[in-house]
Amino acid sequence: MTDLTLGRVTADRERLLALLQEYGVYLGVVVLFLVNTVFTPHFLSTENFRTQAVQVAPVLIVALGMALAIGSEGVDLAVGSVMALSTSLLSLYLGYGPGIAVVVALVGGAVVGVANGSLIAFVGVQPIVATLALMVAGRGLALVLLPQLKDVHDPAMAELGSGDALGVPYVVLIAAALALLVGFVVRRTTFGRSLLAIGDSRPAARLAGLPVRRVLILVYVCSGVLAAVAGVLATARLTASDPSSLGNLMELSAITAVVVGGTPLSGGRIRIGGTVAGAVLIQLLTTTLIKHDLPPSWTQIAQAVVIVLAVYAARERGKR
């Protein structure tokens, strides 16, 4: 009798835990939203939502690429450096007009992606090592190209950074479009399916005849280009190229967003919705602490707590 109830209780607990792992990030967003609605003055305003959305956009875009890399059982530590590199290139080529400059910046991101992907797929370097190398090299190159902060006066760039269409900032529109695009790619394309299979079991994917190397390279190219897009948008918003500080610790924010969003670090699964929510959760958390003027060290502690919770959840997932 007691055994029976006990069994049911643990089963319920397990189901609850599973649900929490699955939807915990959304719950977190809702809770933080409600807390802010009640306690933070002027929280429920269009202006505020706009600000939050604009601020989360670059992190989100980088996190989308990171989700692909993590889904393939890898990681891309070079994203922050790619942002710096893209802002340097953008500034250097702005003389040819914003269009060409943006293209050059994105190509720069793709090139870093090819380098990362080749190291991983052909040379067999572990993703964390390969992208660490490019993280150091990318930032160095960015600073060689543009040693110090440089203002961007181009009106088109300024418009990209702070303009809007129907009240929605371009930056937010681009981030949303990219999130939908990446979600579509993961769900509906052969590339997305292959990527998940490779992330889950590489030997099986190889024996099934999937183009493992091509897919891996493409993953890091996507991640590089998305990081470059984030770099361009951040530059436009700041109306300045600052390669020494742009994208610093971005790789950690992106990994946090992806992991908090429920994508397992062991690969084989990508949750784009969760990643978006993860990025929003961290943004809301930081914002809440800033708006209530809590000491900056609290922000770091709070982020650490969220990461620990996410890792705990990931550990639980790994056990199943």
Binding site: T190, L196, S201, A204
Partner: peptide, 27 residues
Amino acid sequence: EGIVPGLSVRENIALAALPGLSRFGLV
């Protein structure tokens, strides 16, 4: 080396045939 444990029965069956079952990269 055989199954991809985290993917569904459906995805596993379609895995090798995937390139043939898509148009313009779409499944």
